[in-house]
Design a protein around this nucleic acid. Structure first.
Lengths: 286, 286
DNA sequence: ATTCGAATGTAATAAAATGACATAAAAACG
DNA sequence: CGTTTTTATGTCATTTTATTACATTCGAAT
């Protein structure tokens, strides 16, 4: 855990002098990591061994080791705990807060992912006869994005954000079809019904959604992003970014699995859009 | 700059013994930060002052200071320099590489952004009579996403990924219209033409695109993400994520600017989708 | 009020880092 | 090709820094 947060959290478990040390560090972490133990002791108005004991209490080997941990926690982007945007933030402030919280969220998502499940999902996708991506509302753009990526593999792939089309597509389904359903909450009724319908028609259902949600229960394979969406007054932001990155991961896994043969396909698609470009075209998507 | 990368880059500027130190550190940075100077000297098979001199050469005050820098650079997500996916990566490997490179990319984007321009863009958006988001190909999902966000503000907003619709929409435009064009390269011909057309019809054109691109030249305001897209054989991934986060930033700026009054609107939209959900509905998007 | 135990500080010790100097290696020059 | 000069490296002494052992103080409990 972030050392700085750890200190903050344990403030009341410290003794009087140790708290002085804690406060001196919190007041200026940057000073702390560049001070000797003697210097920090003077700043905190305690003795040197007290500082040392403080460090040990935080599960470090001693003062130098503690400085290392602290330095790392300072480097970690989010120096202070609360990164929520508030009313009177200026452009500078809210821009970096949003970027930082998105990064933190991706980091959390990364750590919470089960790579075995990802591998399974890639397995299933590579063997699919046809792949469909469905999402509603905010998740529909994630589905579109997935379409845009998978379509380059030159395999049958579709994407609908219209519930009627989704239903029809499911009904016409058959074994070998893979349906990828995207929903952050996993509680969107129509989508849960789609999952049922798809399975009744022998399709394989992969869900990008929350664990233990109704949608998860109806799916064959669940890729959950343990992103505790900050239920602030704004809208789902980070969670969706994490979904997109997960799509990137699946796409990459797919590409690797299919091997060199399929990489040629990508090149062909890219070449195809080349002449709709101005010169100096470096080959990626529009 | 990242200390580890710095060492790697300057490998050939070091002297023979110093290179030994560099290699010992690169071989196991984790060991390095937990060693004393004596220990590291022994590992690298050099004398202690050599290690010290090595540290100074990297613009640090000495060995302890160097360890601090190194520790920070190790904490920064990208422990090793080359984070590109390669053929024989397993799920574990490519998953974390993609997440990490996305995070690194967001960090770069964050640092490269001009918050003054963001503020201007928010200004323009709040004063718009009508906002349109246009993108083609991979960027169309970004446009969709923007639509999904801005539509909640209860203002006239549209989004087309069809070039004909985009043209028509521009032709019907008038002063007070704001067109947001999204293109990573800024070299997609049709979109550049749209920019021209829009301006001829007195619309204000905001471009999310590369600096100094044809599209940038045709726009009133350019928000550029200095994301040097890794032109590997895969597809644009990180750059698009950065665009999405930028949309998040604009949305947030918009919300803050409009103040409390408009936040009620958001609540109403959320309430509106509530009954299409299963119980335990926490109010965010689908 | 007294005693016990925890918390803190003092001073000695050990460890680590740095500086000064000497030597060895390499480069430049005749 | 040898000599000189420069640069790089190592040895050893010094200083700084961290840690340990022990003494003292403070505060709570009896």
């Amino acid at each position: 855990m972030n050392t700085l947060e750890l200190i903050k959290k344990n403030l009341d478990t410290f003794s009087k002098s140790e708290r002085k040390v804690a406060e001196a560090i919190l007041a200026s972490p940057q000073t702390a990591i560049h001070s000797s133990i003697a210097n920090l002791a003077k700043i905190a108005e305690v003795s040197e061994p007290t500082v040392n004991r403080f460090c040990r209490r935080l599960d470090t080997k001693g003062f130098p080791d503690f400085k290392l941990h602290l330095a790392q926690s300072l480097a970690n982007g989010t120096p202070y705990v609360n990164r929520n945007v508030n009313e009177d933030d200026g452009p500078e402030a809210y821009t970096s807060k949003i970027f930082e919280s998105t990064m933190a969220c991706l980091n959390a998502a990364k750590n919470g992912l089960d790579t075995n499940l990802i591998n399974r999902a890639v397995d299933v996708l590579t063997q699919a006869n046809k792949i469909s991506f469905f999402g509603l509302g905010a998740s529909s753009s994630v589905a579109h994005d997935a379409l845009n990526k998978f379509f380059r593999f030159n395999i049958p792939v579709s994407c609908f954000d219209d519930i009627v089309m989704q239903r029809m597509s499911c009904i016409n389904g058959s074994e070998g079809d893979v349906i990828v359903l995207i929903s952050h909450t996993g509680r969107t009724k129509p989508l849960v019904e789609i999952a049922q319908l798809a399975r009744e028609n022998d399709a394989f259902v992969i869900a990008l959604t929350a664990e233990d949600s109704p949608l998860a229960e109806q799916s064959n394979l669940v890729l959950s992003l343990g992103v505790p969406e900050d239920t602030d007054i704004y809208m789902p932001m980070s969670s969706r970014i994490a979904q997109l990155v997960l799509i990137d991961v699946l796409t990459t896994g797919f590409t690797l699995r299919r091997g060199a043969k399929f990489r040629d396909n990508l090149k062909r698609v890219k070449a195809g859009i080349k002449d709709s470009r101005f010169e100096k075209t470096n080959d990626e998507a529009l």
